[in-house]
Amino acid sequence: MAHAEPAAALRGAVFADRRRAWLGALGRAGVTLLVLAALWGLWEAYRWVGVRTQLTWPFPVDDVTMPHIHTILQALFEPSRVNGPLLISVLLDSAWFTAKEALLGFALGAAFGFGLGIVLAHSRLLQRGFLPYIVASQTVPILAIAPMVVVWLKSGWLSVAVIAAYLTFFPVTINTLRGLLSADPRALELMRSYAASPWAVLWRLRVPAALPYIFSALRVSATASVVGAIIGELPSSIQDGLGGAILNFAQYYSIQPANLWATNLVAAALGIVFFLAVVLAEKLVVRRAPENVA
């Protein structure tokens, strides 16, 4: 009996934790659906008022500028062209193509930004010398950078990935630097008192302390990599991705606006998928970080 009571208490605590987790997940899903419904309602309400009052500022409201949400969703399940495949099938293929480019660019940019952050964290001289130029690199419009990258590397996957990496590396570099420098000075002194090598200090103390900073940057960079890949497809003349789909449907916007809006929805969904993937990775990695392991 003495052993049964602690076991029962443990099972009860585990069940309670799982119940709280499920309730939390359901609550977040409910809030998400509520926000989507509210946005849908605001769109339709503004459209209704604009059409009834013939609103012209900041733009005329009609079926071209603001199609019904249900019209946009319906367009996904209609043929993209006469006797052609469904639009959603075309867009999912394009999204998969763009996702591979964005993933490569995200990996390149994150790896470069992480490495650069480590180098800068170990030298104040390098910080003073390079940080102004790193910041200045982000003031140049990506639309100006993209054509030059395509000329240098030729059209193809690599040029698009480099453009995506260009938007990815900056937040990772800055947050990695901040995170590595945020380590507890007392812990640093303790490790030095044990004659720990710089390599050990980096991986056993500084990197674990920097993980929350790094994942905050990765969440931003994940969506930025999708934007960079889509923009990079335009000067690269790549028609298989979302950039090509946007360019194609933009030509017919005046007669088929729902197709372009549907493409934008799929592009937004791709960015959300990238964001959620980083959130999931953060939960797995940060939970297993040394300071969180009892």
Rank of each mutant, 00 (worst) to 15 (best):
R288E: 01
L181F: 09
A262V: 13
L270Q: 03
V226W: 06
I246M: 14
V151E: 05
S237W: 03
A111N: 10
E5F: 12
E291A: 14
T53V: 11
T223S: 14
S236P: 06
Y166L: 15
V61G: 10
T168W: 01
E78D: 09
I118S: 02
L211W: 00
I214L: 14
W261P: 00
N248I: 03
N292I: 09
F275V: 07
P85M: 03
V285D: 00
R192W: 07
T53M: 10
V220I: 15
N83Y: 09
D63E: 15
P235L: 05
V14L: 15
F114Q: 00
F59S: 07
M66I: 13
V51E: 08
Y194M: 13
A229F: 00
Q127T: 03
N292V: 04
A7D: 10
Y133W: 15
Y166V: 12
V64K: 05
A8E: 13
A102S: 15
L126H: 00
L188W: 05
I134T: 05
T263V: 15
I69Q: 04
L153K: 10
A200L: 14
Y166F: 14
E44Q: 15
G179L: 01
V90S: 11
V201Q: 12
F170I: 01
L260Q: 00
G113S: 02
L36A: 12
N259T: 10
F169Q: 01
I231F: 06
A222I: 09
Q74W: 05
I174A: 05
A146P: 01
R52A: 15
P257K: 11
T173R: 07
A210T: 07
S182T: 00
L104K: 07
L188I: 12
F114K: 01
L280K: 09
S225V: 03
W48D: 14
R178P: 05
A7I: 13
T176Y: 02
L104N: 06
P290Q: 04
L86E: 12
E233P: 02
Q256N: 14
I118P: 02
I72Q: 04
V140P: 09
R19Q: 13
G228W: 01
N175F: 06
Q251R: 11
A29S: 14
T65L: 10
H122F: 13
A262G: 13
W43N: 07
Q239L: 09
Q74C: 03
D240V: 07
S236G: 13
D184F: 10
V220W: 08
L265N: 05
L280W: 13
I174Y: 02
V227W: 06
G27L: 08
R178H: 07
S221R: 07
S237K: 05
S254Y: 13
I142S: 08
K283V: 10
Y46A: 15
P85S: 04
L104M: 13
V207C: 06
L92R: 00
S216K: 03
A200P: 04
F274G: 06
L108A: 02
V172W: 02
F215H: 00
A144V: 12
I272S: 04
V162N: 01
I230T: 02
P198W: 10
M1Y: 11
V64P: 04
L86T: 08
P290T: 01
L131A: 06
W22S: 11
R192Q: 15
V61T: 11
S80Y: 03
P60G: 11
P185V: 04
T223A: 14
H3M: 12
E5K: 14
E44Y: 10
P290W: 00
A9L: 13
A38N: 09
R287G: 00
V149D: 02
V49S: 05
